[in-house]
Design a protein around this nucleic acid. Structure first.
Length: 455
RNA sequence: GUGGUUGUAGCUCAGCUGGUUAGAGCGCUUGAUUGUGGUUCAGGAGGUCGCCGGUUCGAAACCGGUCUUCCACCCCA
């Protein structure tokens, strides 16, 4: 045998059942995206490198898959760059394109490029693969699918409220209950930084604060100290570290703490507005929780930020995330178009649903009925019946070969086909069909119409 | 990018301090069963031990490299 074939690190093949289950999740998401008024677009798998680079921070740039130029790509390279093996200057000389890293930045590019065709506010959804040159681990792949819904051209906080409800609607429909939608606001984080005189260290500050859950107060303080945030400032942060209570109580504490900060108070105001309006829109399958430590992508988010945590007891990173970005299109030359959006992580949702056994039995790969093949005469009759069933909308197939019954039954069994129809000598004589329920093993001999009516 | 971990039959894994011809269970296949699957019984097929190199009389085992798996960090969906 030749050398065993393989697939690249962090990629996967999907079996028929897996694809059906992924389609089940995607069709549910799509249904509600459309119900909420979002319209589909698609963008290329790869973009010009300029479009992507510099939008995700230094870490993000490192994880972008670069596409090697075609042709004599080395001919234009400066010999000294080649000799020094300096990737920073070499990469742009041999690669002009890159695989997309997320769907939001390509969307911003799309909006700018098609601004004259678009009527704002523009609501779009997109369900496509993205690629990241990350080290794979649990729930982390190098090729995965994101399902995004974004609206640009509206600063209304109703958008945030709708997106929270959209998360709740979809997760409830998937029967994936118990997820927590964590919400925070970048303006609050900016306000806290301002209050402790660490505006210039906003990123270091939020990155450290984000770890509070994971490593505890003392370690977070250590990290902040090491980043140059002074002890007096840390003292002021005490209420943040020990924040407790429900959404309203936490918000009250923050309001008191941030009363000197204009931007901080703006953040509090926004979260208060959302909270008040959520009162008449109770969530059915998820919980909304104000999490001041939530930081997220610091690159383009400016207002509310979201992240969806899997139900307690399931160890999985976030299954969704999003937020408001006030000036992402500005990078591409279109000012003053605020956007806000959320993303569903299809692959992680799949893993969580699999772990919790939430896929309905009806989501199967195979047909509903298999006609057994008893030989030339019999299978000819079966072939006619087969198409009668199909025309009635029943997924059906005929076993193609005149194989042993055992083999044909095993085929039905292995493929989770719930019913088998036998057409032999006796059936042809009486004009009836024998229907076997594979689960119970029971058989009945009935008219074709009667059987069709059962499906 | 950093640290650890894994790789032996289609799958899950044994394989001793290096020593003849590489093992199990499940699965696959054939038959017991010429109109009946999931149970049982009997037979059979299937592996250059991830790949490349090194040490050795001798390597699945030891060493180096590389690819891959899983995990933690980083970051994120």
């Amino acid at each position: 045998m030749a050398q065993k074939p393989s697939i690249p690190q962090g990629t996967r093949d999907f079996s028929p059942l897996e694809v059906q289950r992924r389609n089940y999740i995607m069709s549910t998401i799509k249904k509600y995206f459309e119900q909420y008024g979002f319209m589909p677009i698609e963008t290329p798998s790869f973009e010009n490198s300029d479009t992507l680079l510099g939008k995700y921070g230094e870490e993000g740039d490192r994880l972008i898959f670069k596409v090697l130029n075609n042709g004599a790509y080395l001919s234009k390279v400066k010999p000294e760059d080649l000799a020094e093996q300096d990737e920073k200057s070499l990469t742009p000389q041999i690669s002009d394109r890159a695989l997309r890293y997320d769907l939001t930045v390509p969307f911003a590019r799309y909006v700018v490029q098609h601004q004259n065709e678009i009527t704002f506010p523009f609501k779009r959804y997109q369900m496509q693969n993205v690629w990241r040159a990350d080290r794979p681990q649990k729930g982390r792949f190098r090729e995965f699918t994101q399902c995004d819904a974004d609206v640009v051209g509206s600063t209304s906080l109703y958008q945030e409220i709708e997106l929270i409800k959209l998360y709740d609607t979809v997760f409830t429909a998937l029967n994936l209950t118990g997820c927590t939608i964590k919400i925070n606001n970048r303006k609050i984080l900016a306000g806290i930084a301002e209050m402790i005189g660490a505006e210039d260290k906003l990123i270091d500050f939020t990155v450290a604060l984000d770890k509070l859950d994971k490593i505890g107060i003392e370690k977070v303080k250590e990290e902040m100290l090491s980043k140059g945030i002074n002890a007096v400032a840390l003292e002021k942060l005490h209420p943040v570290f020990t924040l407790e209570g429900d959404y309203a109580q936490k918000l009250a504490t923050m309001q008191d703490l941030l009363k000197e900060s204009a931007i901080g108070m703006k953040g509090v105001e926004e979260l208060t507005f959302i909270h008040e309006n959520m009162q008449q829109l109770p969530l059915t399958g998820t919980n909304l929780d104000l999490d001041i430590t939530l930081a997220r992508g610091l690159n383009y988010y400016t207002g509310c930020i979201f992240e969806v945590a899997a139900p307690a007891g399931v160890s999985m990173g976030s299954v969704g995330g999003g937020g408001r970005y006030d000036d992402l299109t500005g990078i591409f030359g279109l000012k003053d178009v605020s956007g806000v959006g959320i993303s569903f992580g299809l692959d992680r949702i799949y893993l969580v649903m699999e772990e919790l056994g939430l896929f309905p039995d009806s989501v199967r790969a195979g047909v509903d009925v298999l006609f057994l093949n008893f030989g030339m005469q019999e299978s000819r009759v079966a072939l006619g019946e087969l198409f009668r069933f199909r025309e009635s909308g029943i997924k059906a197939e005929l076993y193609p070969d005149e194989a042993k019954m055992k083999k044909q039954m095993t085929y039905a069994d292995r493929n989770d086909i719930p019913f088998v129809i036998l057409i032999g000598e006796d059936e042809i004589k009486t004009g009836k069909l024998t229907l076997k329920d594979m689960k119970t093993g029971k058989q009945e001999t009935l008219d074709a119409e009667t059987i069709i009516a059962r499906f």
